[in-house]
Nucleic acid binder design. Sequence first.
DNA 1: GACTTTTATACCCGAACGGGAATATAATTA
DNA 2: TAATTATATTCCCGTTCGGGTATAAAAGTC
Lengths: 75, 75
Amino acid sequence: MRNDRIAVFVRESRKAAGLTQAEFAIRSGLGLRFVHDLEQGKETVRLDKVNQALAMFGMEAVPGRIERKAEDEQP
Amino acid sequence: MRNDRIAVFVRESRKAAGLTQAEFAIRSGLGLRFVHDLEQGKETVRLDKVNQALAMFGMEAVPGRIERKAEDEQP
DNA sequence: GACTTTTATACCCGAACGGGAATATAATTA
DNA sequence: TAATTATATTCCCGTTCGGGTATAAAAGTC
């Protein structure tokens, strides 16, 4: 599993909005299965669906510099 | 066609690197067809492939605020 | 600890992605 | 303008996504 940035963003935004995956699926017009997969960081999802989810929060997928997690840093 | 941010970024980065679509396809391990589709802004591409392309420039798909183009602005 | 809600998996299957390769069209260059 | 190179488009087709639904597991509540 990877692609945490988008997965984490969607999950946290959804929770912040007080929605369950099921509710979010309905409101966004996406399938529950997809919402789950997306939040799990599934890498092979389709970009249009990802954007459909991000659009719920005024966001979209854009290029961003890859950044290491703190744990991976060289001391 | 939509998803210009990623499409434009890949196209311009590739050209800046002095690569043709064919060369870029080979180096990135992606299909020529996909590279073309991506640069055309095809929306239904798979995220892992998009990231595979962006990774060539140290980038990845991340959530970003949707921004209108200047032309769409209300005067 | 029993009950309710939410999240995680599984299955079936139509729809569509993407690779490779061939060809057409457009853009560069000599 | 002819020749060369790059980009766009098309075909065949194996692989896989994602919807819907059912169920299991986990998390949260009283």
